[in-house]
């Protein structure tokens, strides 16, 4: 392929995993307590997708990466300041809620609309990337729905590896049960790839990449259209924080033999 891939990565923000989360009731439905105050990070599996996209784009001349993100504009801006230092991409931002209680199909419709609005997109070069599940809704639904709306019927989830074959076919490894991978060969784009961890470490900050990205990120955020997600037809009866606290018995100063005996007894029970 002479003209390279057009890699569109769908990814948004989630609360930093170190934060304690508590549910809150709002007129618009359930939310997190102090949701707007919680520090946010790029959704981890979407992050892997972005790094894999950048790596592929570097290898195949003429390729380009877009990051399509739906989230509260101010929070997106904060996270882009960090992510923008890592790999080159063009941001397409949508201003709206990114929480776990939003409806995946409404999110998907907004994302698909934004992707269709990217000028010069050519479906014969299109790879739609994202995380296989978010750290918020954790549903693994959004990408399939975006793919369907864009008419893409070659879809892969839990992807850990993509290798372009000499004949241009895509070899894809997807996670399946029991710690195994299913290996597929897809003739050509378009395809949807929901990434798991992949194989790449998080790229180091690169000030040059940062400068280049920032020139485009701020105008993209200013242009961000509002995406009103209404949660049509969806009602939550309750969202709760089940108590996780156990009474931990702390066993100190017991010889290794005795601890071992206790553990073996417990395993065999």
């Amino acid at each position: 392929m002479s003209s390279g891939y057009q890699i569109v990565v769908c990814g948004s923000i989630v609360p930093d995993p170190w934060q304690t989360l508590e549910p809150a009731v709002t007129p618009a439905g359930p939310a997190l307590k102090n949701e707007m105050m919680l520090p946010a990070v790029l959704d981890p599996w979407a992050g892997h997708a972005l790094f894999e996209a950048a790596n592929l784009a570097r290898q195949v001349a003429g390729s380009k990466v877009w990051l399509v993100a739906l989230g509260p504009k101010a929070k997106l801006q904060q996270v882009m300041m960090t992510i923008g230092q890592k790999v080159p991409f063009e941001l397409v931002a949508l201003d709206g809620p990114a929480g776990g209680f939003t409806d995946a199909s409404e999110t998907a419709t907004a994302l698909a609309g934004a992707i269709q609005g990217i000028s010069g997109l050519d479906s014969s070069r299109l790879l739609l990337f994202g995380g296989w599940e978010s750290a918020s809704r954790g549903a693994g639904v959004t990408l399939q729905l975006v793919g369907e709306q864009l008419g893409i019927t070659d879809q892969f989830q839990g992807v850990d590896q993509l290798k372009v074959q000499p004949d241009g076919r895509l070899e894809i490894l997807e996670r399946i049960e029991g710690g195994r991978h299913q290996v597929s060969l897809c003739d050509a784009p378009p395809a949807v790839l929901g990434w798991a961890t992949g194989h790449l470490p998080e790229p180091k900050n690169n000030p040059q990449v940062g400068m280049m990205n920032m020139r485009q990120v701020m105008p993209a955020l200013q242009r961000a259209q509002a995406a009103a997600l209404k949660g049509e037809g969806l009602t939550f009866a309750e969202v709760s924080l089940p108590s996780q606290v156990r009474e931990t018995r702390i066993v100190k100063d017991l010889p290794a033999d005795e601890i071992a005996r206790e553990i073996v007894e417990w395993i065999k029970q």
């Binding site: 989630v14 776990g100 918020s136 954790g138 969806l234 009866a237 969202v239």
Partner: peptide
């Protein structure tokens, strides 16, 4: 009515859909 977890098993929700 469906029960599922949100935020990587931190919060549990019960929901209905029309």
């Amino acid at each position: 009515e469906v029960t599922r977890w949100f935020y990587r098993q931190r919060l549990r929700g019960r929901l209905k859909r029309a």
